[in-house]
Design a protein around this nucleic acid. Structure first.
Length: 327
RNA sequence: GGAUGGUUUCCCGAGUGGCCAAAGGGGACAGACUGUAAAUCUGCUGGCAACGCCUUCGGUGGUUCGAAUCCACCACCAUCCA
């Protein structure tokens, strides 16, 4: 029997966090954060991390697990998430994957296989140099020779993905396009329900602007100053997060504070749009329009529970029962 | 009251007689994504019955085969002189 897995996601600033707590309490869930920035310790304000008291006793995982100079990526996320899910099931609870990183969610939900290749530092460096010195097209030509399908699908300017495709081929001897094609066909090994919380674009953008203002008030700049003082630089994955790279640019004198804030708001809006694009093409997604529930968290939560019941999930008063019947 | 500079497509901004529905940037919108994903990258942006036609470059009128580009007047903005 498939293990249950709840997913609650949506674009940044829609209000996932508050809802996730309600939902966790309603179904006896524990939360695994699917967020590429909230894993980092010391990055609280900019990543809009949930506060201890907001958790209301609901266990959270993959929050504050790494130092900002550690690299984090899907593969790490996937293996850690898997580990935590197993533990949660063993406790007789339901894991709730919450967060805005669609790629991470996909990796766990469809159990995408990443194990075939190791990242090859020297080879990457060589490819990066080729791109830099001879141009993106030259690199893309190299890909065309070994993996014409990927060459067709990946734009030559997208150097990162061209490099990954070349690296994959070198490591495994098979084109990444072939691997991807197989992975795409996978069915999820879980009994899952994938909810995407959404709102009118205009409202969402308004919330983003407001949230950035609030982050500034709460001391985002100081937070970034502290991180900078500890030696964390813009080259690190963590410091490429929204809020961090902009404040760092200001601190390095690359732009004025006003410009930094403007760019942060704009790029956060762009990010939200990209998230939405991602969720739109994910299969088996259940969209929840906040407006349809008068922006009332409790109503949204009830609607989610209702939907779960319709799908045959047994959500009872007794959480232990709930899980047992699902398992 | 006078002098000069300006008014361009959602915004900024280039364009000084035909190759201009108008460079470039921004925003908006749409999309891709399978080991950096809060990353990286792409497309699109006057209208339409669309290899063509129509409307557009402050307004009106004029010069010209032809005007965003030249002329006249008007309106507004900016700076300077009264």
């Amino acid at each position: 029997m498939k293990q249950p897995l709840l997913i609650l996601t949506g674009p940044t600033a829609v209000g996932k966090t508050a809802l996730s707590i309600l939902l966790a309490k309603a179904v006896g869930g524990e939360i695994i954060s699917a967020d590429s920035m909230q894993v980092y310790r010391g990055m609280d304000i900019g990543s809009a991390k949930i506060k201890k008291e907001e958790m209301q006793g609901v266990p959270h995982f993959l929050i504050d697990e790494l130092e900002p100079d550690e690299t984090f990526h899907v593969v790490k996320f996937q293996s850690l998430a898997r580990k935590y899910m197993n533990e949660i099931w063993q406790r007789g609870h339901i894991p709730i994957l919450t967060g805005g990183t669609g790629f991470y969610i996909q990796a766990v939900l469809y159990d995408i296989d990443f194990t075939q290749s190791e990242s090859d530092g020297p080879y990457r460096a060589e490819l990066e140099r080729t791109a830099r010195e001879q141009g993106a097209r030259t690199l893309h030509e190299q890909l065309r020779l070994v993996d014409p399908v990927s060459a067709r699908d990946i734009h030559e300017n997208n150097v990162k993905r061209v490099i990954r495709a070349l690296e994959f081929y070198k490591e495994t001897g098979t084109p990444i396009s072939k691997h991807n094609e197989q992975e795409r066909k996978k069915e999820s090994p879980y009994q899952f329900a994938y909810f995407v919380l959404n709102d009118d674009r205009e409202r969402l953008y308004g919330r983003i602007d407001k949230r950035v203002d609030k982050m500034i008030e709460e001391g985002l700049l100081d937070e970034v100053k502290r991180l900078k003082a500890r030696g964390f630089t813009k080259e690190m994955v963590s410091m490429q997060g929204l809020g961090y790279k902009e404040m760092l640019a200001f601190l390095d004198g690359a732009c004025s504070f006003e410009e930094a804030v403007y760019i942060l708001k704009r790029d956060t809006r762009h990010f939200a749009k990209r998230q939405l694009t991602w969720f739109k093409r994910e299969r088996d997604v259940i969209w929840i329009d906040k407006g349809a529930y008068q922006y009332d968290e409790k109503r949204i939560c009830s609607a989610i529970l209702e939907e779960l019941k319709n799908r045959g999930w047994k959500i009872g008063e007794n959480h232990e029962d709930t899980v047992r019947s699902n398992v």
